[in-house]
Simulated assay, not measured.
Amino acid sequence: MSGIHASGAPTAVGHYPHARRFGNTLYLSGIGPRNPADNSIPGNEYFADGRLRKYDIEAQVRAVFSNVRAVLAASGARWEDLVDVTVYLTDMARDFKAYNAVWAEHFPDAASAPCRTTLGITALPTPIAIELKCIARIED
């Protein structure tokens, strides 16, 4: 098994790799929408005291997809190699419809899309509204 750190993805918020390869299977750690260049969170707006005022789920979905693509590329895989995706949303009632619409843009053919499970959770470790946990295959 080899740990993979992708220079084009945001740094991990803990002590773990972006991904780990085991045989022809690639397991990605939880990936969020933070900007790899400056660690900002696309679509977030803050009050003067630093508290989150509002966020744009579509901006965060597009950013998290970009970050997943960066980890896949650094690992020798492609977007089309995704097999299974677990999605964590902090506000399922508010964000699922918009998330699902962006998903459909990126996977227009449901038959060839990866399997997906979407969970509503109360919080993530940074002020993000979405995180993905992915499994992909790697062809030798």
Rank of each mutant, 00 (worst) to 15 (best):
T122P: 07
T11A: 12
A113S: 05
E45P: 04
G14P: 09
R78K: 14
E139F: 10
D38F: 12
L82V: 03
C134P: 12
V13Y: 10
S40R: 01
A19S: 09
F65K: 12
P127L: 06
Q60P: 01
V83Y: 06
S40L: 06
L119P: 02
I135E: 02
L124E: 12
N67M: 02
D38R: 07
A110Y: 08
V71F: 04
M1G: 15
G23V: 13
S66H: 13
V71L: 10
A70C: 08
H15E: 13
I130N: 06
P10F: 02
D95P: 04
V71M: 11
G76R: 00
A98I: 13
P42L: 05
A74G: 05
A9D: 00
R69Q: 15
E45W: 06
L124Y: 04
L28N: 09
N35R: 02
N44P: 04
A123S: 14
S112W: 07
R34V: 15
D38L: 11
V13F: 09
C115I: 09
P17W: 01
F22G: 12
A98G: 08
V13L: 13
R51P: 05
F22T: 15
A101H: 06
R62P: 03
V64C: 11
S2I: 10
A12K: 13
V64E: 02
K97I: 14
V68W: 06
R69V: 09
P108C: 06
R69H: 13
V83C: 05
Y88I: 10
A104S: 14
